[in-house]
Amino acid sequence: MSEEIKTTALGRFGAAFAKFLAYFVMVLFSLMTLYPIFWLIMNSFKPTREFQVSQLGFPHVPTLKNYGGPYGAWKLGDFDKLIPNSVIYTLGATFGIIILSVLAGFAFAKIPRKATKLIYASFVIGLLLSVQSLLIPLFLEVNIMGIYNTRLAVLLVYIGAGLPMGIYLSTEYIRGIPTSLVESARIDGAKYFRIFRSIILPMTIPVATTLAILNITGIWNEFALINILVSKTELKSLPLGMYRFSGSLSSDWGKQFAALTIGTLPMLVFYFIFRKQITQGVAAGAVKG
């Protein structure tokens, strides 16, 4: 598009130099991003004794010992419990966020009520609030309610934390759907729940997808909140399980790397498949006025 301008020798040189610089920056930062992850995965196939003498080289004889066996990371880290838990929390909370948000979003956008202004504003303020700063009061509250160390507590907190964004995005989205659709259905005598189910819900698939993308990655990796909500191994999620490998097991590098690799791979695969949707979802989630 800028071919016309590159007529002078200086202009051509400048453009070539800019191009070189741009590639240099991109390659440098891409290497800085990928190499540590590659290094982590590579070293998970090295026995700890080999790692202690050579941290940079390829494994002489790649081994799966760090992963499997009675003393492997899989067993030590209880990954057979962590992974199902993470799946339950992630899918459960994501589903809850989407349903509650779309329902409330429809009411805010299409059912005229005086209360909407205040309630909706209170959700939008929540966008600026990070639930993480409320770790301690949340911990106390969960204890008062008697749901410490339950899946319910985790799901409740995750859903609550995701609601401001969920409600904001779905309300704005449903506002964009022509009100005449709702009005004509009302004139035909349809109830609001029916309108929601048969007209609105199918139309909110794009915003539901965005919410799913935003929350799946966020909840799968969440650590600070669940850290104060559960302490039983049977209820722990992947990040909690992996955190153990930074403490008591941190000098057995081989196993530590194996554990981190196990915890990272599912999301890497997810990202690899849904990269386009993830990037679009993230961009949509950040657009707020």
Binding site: L34, W220, N221, M242, S246, M267, L268, Y271
Partner: peptide
């Protein structure tokens, strides 16, 4: 990529 890896 760093954004989709757990902070842990």
């Amino acid at each position: 990529v760093p954004n989709i890896i757990s902070v842990i």
